[in-house]
């Protein structure tokens, strides 16, 4: 049985994002809003996106609860996509998301790491 490096997984940067998540806010005006969850963990996430005139993400906010990994991942992806065109956002691969997170992820935690990313993939173009 392979051990993950737990210190790496819960490195300070991840814990900091868990304590103080980025973009965790309600947008007063938004173009789209989507919700998703991981029913077995109870992780839940709603993302709101405000598109500007050119179809770029002007502002983004999420309301979510879940484990440190999901909270950190949602922070990172919502930060990453700011000012990007929604079509480009949808081209962000799973691998890229994991790279952003930059920590070892076990099979069972993959769905935590990908929750926020998977919501952005579902936004209408």
């Amino acid at each position: 049985m392979q051990d993950v490096d737990i210190e790496q997984m819960y490195k300070e940067a991840i814990l900091e994002l868990n304590r103080n998540p980025l973009n965790k806010k309600v947008l007063p005006y938004f173009s789209f809003e989507l919700f998703s969850s991981n029913p077995s963990c109870g992780d839940e996430c709603t993302i709101q996106v405000q598109l500007d005139r050119d179809g770029n993400i002007g502002d983004i906010g999420h309301q979510s609860k879940g484990c440190a990994i999901s909270q950190a991942a949602i922070s990172l992806i919502t930060e990453e996509v700011k000012n990007q065109n929604i079509q480009d956002v949808k081209k962000i691969t799973k691998e890229k998301m994991l790279e952003l997170l930059g920590i070892p992820i076990t099979h069972t935690r993959l769905k935590c790491a990908l929750l926020g990313w998977s919501i952005l993939q579902k936004f209408p173009e």
Binding site: V4, Y10, C41, A68, I69, R109, C112
Partner: peptide, 23 residues
């Protein structure tokens, strides 16, 4: 602390427990 984080850290000590909503 979220239960999944607890279970993950337990695993690093070879402790197997269940976390989450338990169906």
């Amino acid at each position: 602390v979220h239960s999944h984080d607890v279970a993950q850290i337990f695993d690093s000590e070879n402790i197997a427990v269940r976390a989450g909503q338990h169906c």
